[in-house]
Nucleic acid binder design. Sequence first.
DNA 1: AATGAATGAGTATTCATTCAT
DNA 2: AATGAATGAATACTCATTCAT
Lengths: 206, 206, 206, 206
Amino acid sequence: MEDKRSSIIAAAAEVIDKWGSQFTMDMVAQQAGVAKGTVYLYFASKQDLLLSMIMEGLQELEQGLKDAVVGCKDAGGKLAAIVTAHYQMVISKAPLFIKLVSQDPMLFREARPEILPYLKGIEGVYADVLKQGVQEGCFGGINPEITGIILLTLVHNAAASCSIFRPDLSAEAVLEQVHTLIFQGINAAPQLAFKNLLQEGKTCKV
Amino acid sequence: MEDKRSSIIAAAAEVIDKWGSQFTMDMVAQQAGVAKGTVYLYFASKQDLLLSMIMEGLQELEQGLKDAVVGCKDAGGKLAAIVTAHYQMVISKAPLFIKLVSQDPMLFREARPEILPYLKGIEGVYADVLKQGVQEGCFGGINPEITGIILLTLVHNAAASCSIFRPDLSAEAVLEQVHTLIFQGINAAPQLAFKNLLQEGKTCKV
Amino acid sequence: MEDKRSSIIAAAAEVIDKWGSQFTMDMVAQQAGVAKGTVYLYFASKQDLLLSMIMEGLQELEQGLKDAVVGCKDAGGKLAAIVTAHYQMVISKAPLFIKLVSQDPMLFREARPEILPYLKGIEGVYADVLKQGVQEGCFGGINPEITGIILLTLVHNAAASCSIFRPDLSAEAVLEQVHTLIFQGINAAPQLAFKNLLQEGKTCKV
Amino acid sequence: MEDKRSSIIAAAAEVIDKWGSQFTMDMVAQQAGVAKGTVYLYFASKQDLLLSMIMEGLQELEQGLKDAVVGCKDAGGKLAAIVTAHYQMVISKAPLFIKLVSQDPMLFREARPEILPYLKGIEGVYADVLKQGVQEGCFGGINPEITGIILLTLVHNAAASCSIFRPDLSAEAVLEQVHTLIFQGINAAPQLAFKNLLQEGKTCKV
DNA sequence: AATGAATGAGTATTCATTCAT
DNA sequence: AATGAATGAATACTCATTCAT
C-alpha cells in the first residue's frame, strides 16, 4: 500500500529530526513499526529514501508557496506571502529542510540530476513573482532569476540558522527583519522618506 | 612542528572538499603523506580535527572581514567591503565554509559552546558596521544585531549555494545582486529614482 | 536461536583456551563459524561476552557443587564431595575458570557488582557445609564464612595453578594432598594417632 | 646506570598497580620521568619488562621468606613464619603479585622457561620446611613437594583474592583462618582435644 | 645515552544490505 | 508482502616499537 510507504517516510522524518544525519535504517524501521526488510521493499536504499524525502519535501514546499500567493494580486503582496510562508515552513520543519539543503553535500552532488527539477520549481515560484514585479514596475534593479535564488537561499537559511543557532531570537523578529531587508534594503530611512512622500500624494519636483 | 599540524589541516581541507563529510582519517593521513597515527598526535579525534578546522576557518574569516574595512570611512562603504570580502572568501573556500554552517548539525549542537565565540565574533563585525550606519543615519529600519546575522547568513549561503548548485551562474553576477538586495531591497526602482533625484542636487519638496 | 548463542560461547571458550586474554572477536566469530556481526547480535560487546561466560560458568559450577552433595549426609562427606567435584570441574575447564578468578583484574573491579552474586552463591555452598559441620561438632576452630572462601580459593587455584604450571604432577596426587590438608592440616601424624586410637575402640583417659 | 633501570621498574609497578594489565609503555615512561625510547634502552620489549618485574618480584619474595625463618628452630615455627610473611608480602604488593601468578596466562606459557627457576625457588622454601617437619615427625601424611605447592598457592591466592574481592574481611582474620586450616585442618575440634590431652601431661593408654 | 616524533599493524564496533523463510 | 537473522566491508582509534637527531 501507499500507506506504508508514507508511514515510513513519516517515521524517517521523525528519526532524522531526532538524530540528524546519524540516523540508521534500523531506527527508521523501528519508528515505522515494520521490519528492516520491509523498508527495502519501498526504498531501494538509504540514499533512495533520503532522496524521496527530499523530493517530497521540496514538492510540498513548492505547493505551499503556490498556495500562499493565491488571492494576492500585486507582486509585492505575493512576495511577502511567499517569504512568510517559506519562512514558517522551514521553521516548522527545520530538521528536514536543513537536510534538504545542507545534507551531506555528496548526496547532492551525486543526486543533483534528480533533485534539480524540484529546486528549479521552487526557484521558479520566486522568479515568477519577481518578474511580475519588474514588469509591473514595482521591483527594479534586479535580475529576477538570480535574485530569486538569493531570496530562496536567504529565507531558507535565515530560518534554519536562526532556529538552530540562535534559539534566543524570536522567529517573528527575525522574519520581520527579513522582510525589511528584502523590501527596503539597508537604506530604509531615505526610502521610507520617499515612500511617505509618495503616500502623501505630494509630487516630487524635478 | 606546527608545520605538520598545518599540513594535516590543509590535507583535511582537500579531502573534505573532495569527499564531504564522508571523509575518513585514513584519507586525511594519506593526503598529508603521514601515517594514521601521526594525525592523532596533533588532533585528539576526528571531531577535534573538524572543530579545529572550523575554528581556524572562522578566525581567518573574521580577520579577513576586519581587514576588508580598513580604509573605509562610511558605514555603507564598510558594509560593501565586508560583503564582498565575505563572499569571495566563501567562494574560494566553499567546501570548508559549507562545513562551517551545514556540517552535520549534531556536531554543531554538541560543539556549539566551543564554536559560539567565533560565530559571535563574525556576527559582531557585521553588527558593528550596521550600528555605525544606523547612528550615522544612512541605515535605518533595521535591528543591527538581527540583520547582522541575516546578512551573514545571506552572504554566506548565497555564495555557498550558488557555487555548489548553480555553477552556471557567474559569481560576479550573484555578488552584484546580493549588493543590490542588501542596499536597496527589492524596490530598487523608486529608490533609484530618489537617488538620482538626490544626486542631481535637486531638492525634494514636501 | 539459543543454539547460536551457546555455540558462540563455546567458540569463545575454545579461543580463550588457546589465546588467553589476547583473544579477539574475530577469532570468536571465526571459531563459531559466523560473521563478526553475528556475535554482536548475541553479545553487546566483548566485555559482555566475557561477563556472560563468567556468569554462566559460575552458575554451572554452583550447580555442579550442589549436585555433588546430593546423597551425602554428614558434613565431612559433603565437604569431600564438594572439594572433589570443584577440583575436577576446574581441571576440565581450566582456561575458563582461570578467567573467572585471574582474568584481567580491571574487569572484575568494574564488573564485580554483576558477578558478586554468583561468587556469593558458590561461597555459600562451601559455607553451608562448614556451618553444618561446626554444628554437628565434626568441624571446629573455624569461621565458616572465611574458611569457606579460603577453601574455595584453595581448591580453585590449586587445580588451576597445577594444571598450568605443573603439568608434571598428576591431578589425582594433588587432589589427594588437598583433601589431606583440608581435613587434617599439616599435623596429620598426631591426629592420625588419635584417630587410630579411637578406631581401635580404646578409651582415652583424661 | 642501574639506577634508571630500577626506577623504571618502580614506575612500572606503580602504573600496573593503578591500571592493571591495561598499562602502556607510555604510562611507564611518563611515570619514570624518562622518554619512551629510554625504556627500550633497558628493556627489550614490554614483555621483557614484565618478565623482569616478575623475576625480581619472585626473587624478593623468596628472600623475604628465607629471612622470615631465620631464628626459628622447629618446622612448625618456620612454616608459621613463612605463611605469615608470604601473606603479608602479597597483601602489601597485591597488584604486582597478582600479575606474578595470574597475569595473562599467555605470558606464563611462553615465558615459563625463564620464570620457572624462580617459582621453583619459592616452592623449595616451602618444601624444605615441610620436609624438615616430616623428618622431625611433627608433620605427617603429606607429600612435602606437592603440599608445598598447594600451600604456596593457598597463601598467595587467599591473600590476593581477599584483598581484591572481599575488602570487607580483615586481613588478620583471614590470615588466622589460613593458619588454622594449615595446621589443624577442618577437624580442629578432636585434634584440639588430643592436644589438650597431651598438654595436660596425661597419658594416652593404648 | 637519551629523546620523542613517527609509524602502521591491529581491533572493537557499526550498519546498510541481503535472502531464506 | 513481510520478516529479521546474518553478513562483512568499513572506520575510528590505540599502542608497541623504531630511528633520526
